[in-house]
Design a protein around this nucleic acid. Sequence first.
DNA 1: CTTTATTTAATACATTTGTATCATAAACAA
DNA 2: TTGTTTATGATACAAATGTATTAAATAAAG
Lengths: 192, 192
Amino acid sequence: MPKIVNHEERKRKVAEACWRVIQKKGIEQATVREIAKEAKMSVGSMRHYFSSQKDLFIFSMQLVMDHVHERIKKLPLSGPPIKDAMQVLSQVLPIDAERRLEMEVWFLFTSKALNDPDLKKKSDEMDDELYQACRLIIEHLTVAADWKQETERLYALVDGLAVHAIMRPGRLHPDLLLSVLENHLKVIGQNV
Amino acid sequence: MPKIVNHEERKRKVAEACWRVIQKKGIEQATVREIAKEAKMSVGSMRHYFSSQKDLFIFSMQLVMDHVHERIKKLPLSGPPIKDAMQVLSQVLPIDAERRLEMEVWFLFTSKALNDPDLKKKSDEMDDELYQACRLIIEHLTVAADWKQETERLYALVDGLAVHAIMRPGRLHPDLLLSVLENHLKVIGQNV
DNA sequence: CTTTATTTAATACATTTGTATCATAAACAA
DNA sequence: TTGTTTATGATACAAATGTATTAAATAAAG
């Protein structure tokens, strides 16, 4: 009956356009008009896929989470613990253009989430998952009794490195970032 | 000649009102009208102190930096290196209401700075200072050859802990935050 | 071809926003 | 008092923004 269009696929295309606008102009300039322009459609047409700007933002956050999940799922793990941990954590670090876009966008959504309960819910989801991932890594790497402390330390290090690499890519480039993280894991592995 | 008003003092009062609005409603809702209301003056009157919203934002960022500087300057240092380091780093960690307000506001300014060159300049100033502070701490605590790596690690840990304490205060409360940081410094102090 | 459901897009509208204008008030100097 | 400078705040205005409305185009089914 209708026009031949893959609805979900179109939604993802719009969300990716939303990402690009946020990266290029910031979240305050991520207006429905700017996003529609980037997606090469009209505002009215875009509204057929997202009934409100907030719907689009939440979908765009979920799409970041989905991409991270997919990359981690595809990883050929069960090698050395430190190597596996590096592979997993690299999926949330801005070490190439693709991850950088997603992490910059996520960073801006996170800041907006501080004063937006709907976005905060999604932000907390991701946060809980990353915390648990760090917890598992710590449990596999060490037998330290204070796993809570070590988990917070690893998780804070990962997010801190991500933010610094986003803000100061000239100082904290991908190679340095990865070596800092790997050395941390090595020290942890020798028991703290 | 004029009305009896301390111009600089008034500017600081407005900037602090700006902080409170940003914390309560987010940076997108930190409009000139909201800030004027919080400062208990009219928009026109506020414009007498700041000719534009951007001027107010940059002054408000500078005021955060000033407060951090003042607190550090007042510290009675030259005790044990780890204790001194903790005292200094605590000034940029959200461990009480005052610091939490400043760090939340700074966090939001930082995210806005990603797409605003004027704010980015101020953000980079603070960033450079904190990096150098971490560098000094590392140099005093260890003789490790890789001071660049250790500086990035400490700095990322500090900022990561700050962001997590802001986003998830229920999980990462001030006591846990401080103990994670202190243990890190202790391990560093034993040479890495 | 006709019908029907979906997609597209132009236009409108009420709000909000930053900034500008202008008149008034206040305090000190002459 | 008179004059001058600073402070205050009401009002105005153009631009931007999220959302709603409405009509047209498209593709498949009858």
